[in-house]
Design a protein around this nucleic acid. Structure first.
Lengths: 328, 328
DNA sequence: CCCTTGGCGGAAATCGATTTCACTAAAGCA
DNA sequence: TGCTTTAGTGAAATCGATTTCCGCCAAGGG
């Protein structure tokens, strides 16, 4: 069933049907009624591909994430999808597996399909920036990009790092191991910087040997601690993500450490596993839902009004105190 | 840059460019070279929307899941996406939040956008079946549908339920609480049936009071156990998903139970949290990656060859023994 | 040498919706 | 009444790629 058949059924031209469909006011009431009835009767639904071709927008956006099975990214994806769905947009999911080449392929495919905008929650961004000639609005979430014309939503990572270190110090820690992502992406650097500055403020010497840079993978954390725990002297761990924190806790428990008696741990993100882990994990909570939601809103605003300036939004973080640190 | 401009550049007609693009053999080698060079120089990429309109397929499929933040669904989504990406398809993500109405809206939107196929990992399916007039291939993963013409991939849920109960019994349990989803979806019924039959085979009386049907939510499990644990007499729990298992374990530990000394627990799915939980969780592992991968492959096969009969695939499950049950 | 065959490639129709342009009829104004 | 607006509508162009149909030309057969 296409627009021409509906037009026939209603005894008008396709142009008029289109006008009714798109709410043009230059249609007589009686005509509109006829057309609406024809649509109703025929169950006609406009072909979005044809519409997309003509209008050069396809009511859909692309989401690029490194790993959808990571709860942090999945939560962002879900909240983005919520907003889009409310506005009748659809979402292309692109899971790059942190691979820059794949990311490139994905971006091209998205542009070929005329997405109306793209949301990045991903690294490897800089190298692929040439693909955008400012054609479409882009929003980066979590990881900053220094691109002109890209909106940006992130959490207060520096404050989070500071808060984590401060809490551990106030709980009595003096030698705090920081387990961080080896990638020098902005959020990671900021968390680390917050940690460093906090130590400084509390007159605790900064020991470079206590900063561990590894891939954000359970295995990497486990392997590292198994190898190094006896040579390191530490009474607290600030892990830059909850995934790392739980892997650390898991490994230490197996090694016979007690948490929080021997080692106190603070994570970052507040994934659900943090609450359900045993002992439950003290962590810095990001507003994950808000990250996605805000990102989607910024994108849609710029799609509807291309004149709109790109914005930067920084969302607050919050210390969630649980059983992996001592009450104080 | 469109096909006409490329044609100009190469000094041929758009038809010829199209022929080169689509590998038609009726093109002279020299002409082909000219065209390829023009494409190269101009950086031309075909507009997939226009192509989609003409060919009535859009090189993209829709994925309908209840909740992408659930690791089980996320893993399936990722493996589907992997396969699609290899075949140059894109994926529309539809997160229904288990809402049948939303599911309906999503299906319509997908059909309007001319997806080439749909993969369901979702309930609320039956009521929405009228939307498919056999237009496009559909694959259901995990939850069975009795639709004609729908391929189907699932795990051996009955065997899994049996295996879980058997393991608990062999570890000494005699009163096994089964915590299951209140929804009567097929995988859930099968796990329950396996549990029942196993009890029967071991001559353990089936006590209906030991089967708890609740929503698959952490809070529901917690709330139930807090309220009922003192009135129930049980030495083992078979939770129909790891999420429920962990919520149960968490609650029992808080209540002062020891695991596995007082209560042994077996979950289902083998999500990563199962391994990292403390105590680590014995569980029935599903081949999550394979579920998605196989589903995607079945779908693509039927897209490329619509004559192909829909297939049913049942993947094996496996007991993963960890610390929440006693070694035997 | 003429005719057939088939390779090659262009013109034009097509997919389905939107939109411009032009035209009619009715309404407003003098 | 006569002239100008303006509301309402349809015909046709358009978006960009594919494909059918057709014609041209060269090679091969009689």
């Amino acid at each position: 069933m296409n627009i021409k058949e509906v037009a026939c059924l209603a005894g008008v031209s396709p142009a008029t049907v289109s006008r009714v469909l798109n709410g043009s006011k230059n249609v007589r009431k009686s005509t509109r009624r006829k057309v609406l009835q024809a649509i109703e009767e025929s169950g006609y639904r406009p072909n979005q591909v044809a519409r997309g071709l003509r209008l050069r927008r396809f009511q859909s956006i692309g989401l690029v994430v490194p790993d959808i099975t990571n709860e942090f990214f999945a939560t962002i994806a879900r909240s983005i999808e919520d907003v889009l769905h409310e506005h009748n947009y659809n979402l292309f999911l692109c899971n790059t597996r942190e691979d820059g080449e794949e990311e490139r392929r994905y971006i091209k495919a998205l542009l070929d399909k005329f997405v109306d905008g793209i949301i990045f929650v991903s690294g490897g961004f800089e190298e692929n920036l040439d693909l955008f000639q400012g054609d479409i609005p882009v929003v980066a979430i979590d990881r900053r990009s220094n691109l002109e014309g890209v909106s940006f939503v992130t959490s207060a990572n520096y404050e989070g790092g500071y808060l984590a270190a401060k809490h551990l110090i106030e709980c009595g820690c003096r030698r705090i191991l920081m387990v961080r992502d080896q990638k020098q992406v902005a959020p990671m650097e900021a968390r680390w910087a917050g940690y460093v500055d906090c130590l400084k403020d509390y007159n605790i010497p900064y020991d470079e040997g206590l900063v561990v840079s590894i891939p954000v993978e359970r295995e990497a954390a486990r392997e590292y601690l198994l190898r190094m725990h006896s040579q390191l002297e530490f009474d607290g761990i600030f892990a830059a993500t909850d995934v790392l924190a739980i892997a650390c806790a898991h490994t230490l428990l197996r090694l016979g450490y007690s948490i929080p008696e021997d080692v106190q741990i603070v994570g970052f993100d507040n994934i659900t596993a943090a609450e359900y882990y045993n002992p439950s994990l003290t962590t810095i909570a990001q507003e994950k839902e808000a990250l996605g939601r805000k990102g989607a809103e910024l994108l849609l605003e710029r799609i509807e009004d291309p004149e709109k300036e790109p914005a930067t939004v920084v969302l607050p973080v919050q210390l969630i105190q649980r059983a992996s640190t001592r009450q104080y």
